[in-house]
């Protein structure tokens, strides 16, 4: 009776241990590759927004809207980059918003979204319209049929401006 009860526990534990061992080895192999690739991707995305910014430094301040997941300041005062995660219609919309020292948008870029194909596409195609706008976002309209996506995008940009004001206020 006792042996019958112990054997399954023993075998299952052994299998778990073995699988854990194999996975930790494969993690040791793949982790550096993954980390390096994601650092390169992040750097490339920042460069795309501010090609002549040089180095970026991560910044953080109290009072940032909680949608701001990361913020960077260009070392040569070329501007700030905010990564904002907003709630869209189909899931999170992650955008990168570059704001220059003059308070105007340099460029916005979508990093990830899961919005309805087709209906929401114009929202992401008109990204270029944000370039040069100040915090009033004058002239930006919501896309018909994709109001939630449009508002989420616009809200994300506004949150980036809110964070921008805080950063500026500290200096």
């Amino acid at each position: 009776m006792k042996k019958e009860a112990l054997a399954p526990i023993f075998v299952l534990s052994l299998i778990c241990l073995f699988v854990t061992g194999v996975l930790s080895i494969s993690d040791m192999v793949t982790r550096p590759v993954i980390d390096e690739a994601s650092a390169i991707r992040a750097e490339e995305a920042r460069k795309e927004i501010m090609p002549n910014a040089g180095e970026f430094m991560p910044i953080y301040a109290e009072g940032f809207p909680n949608t701001i997941t990361e913020a960077f300041e260009a070392a040569n005062n070329a501007g700030y980059i905010f990564i904002v995660t907003a709630k869209g219609y189909g899931g999170n919309i992650v955008i990168m918003c570059g704001i220059g020292p003059d308070g105007r948008i340099i460029k916005t870029m979508t990093l990830a979204e899961m919005e309805t194909r087709g209906l929401s596409t114009p929202v992401f195609e008109m990204e270029g319209e944000y370039t040069g706008k100040d915090k009033s976002l004058e002239g930006i309209d919501a896309v018909t049929g994709a109001t939630i996506t449009s508002n989420a995008y616009m809200g994300a940009v506004r949150d980036a401006f809110a964070a921008f004001e805080i950063v500026r206020g500290m200096q």
Partner: peptide, 22 residues
């Protein structure tokens, strides 16, 4: 069933690590 699931989960995690890396 638990044994199968642990084995399957192991292979899935392996596949996940490899696709994320390469």
């Amino acid at each position: 069933i638990p044994c199968y699931i642990v084995l399957v989960a192991g292979f899935v995690t392996l596949a996940q690590m490899v696709t994320e890396a390469y």
